[in-house]
Amino acid sequence: MKTTVRMKVNGVEHSHEVEPRLLLVHYLRDVLGLTGTHIGCDTSICGACTVLIDGQAVKSCTMFAVQADGAEVTTIEGLASNGKLHPVQEGFWECHGLQCGYCTPGMIIAAVQLLERNPNPTEDEVRHGLEGNLCRCTGYQHIVEAVQYAARKLGSGS
């Protein structure tokens, strides 16, 4: 039994007939071709597949596409506007917040929500706020610096 699913992804309306068992992350990657959202552990642990659903960070490997029916979804592809990086993306660029880059899309999405809820986080709050995202390369230090860079950038209004 296929079901119609409609959602707005990065500002664009989509509608497809899908199997209910299709995971959101597979819908984004395989149906919409938005491969910026990565599949890491596939067990709700690593956070590589994190996207925003109606503004809330969610692990898209632990959600069926049909559950996002009617929702607004933001993936890593939707953050930059007019060729200008989102401040969190810029922070990761400037502070070298990645090495292999596999965790980066999910890490950046989680950081976007973190800064929305807490625009001026302490180092401890950044680390705690990213507890749902694992990075095997950086040791997190540059990621924390990247998020703090973004907090300063967003705070200065530029």
Partner: peptide, 9 residues
Amino acid sequence: IGDVQVRNK
């Protein structure tokens, strides 16, 4: 409970 993303959902 869990982590930020888990608690959101």
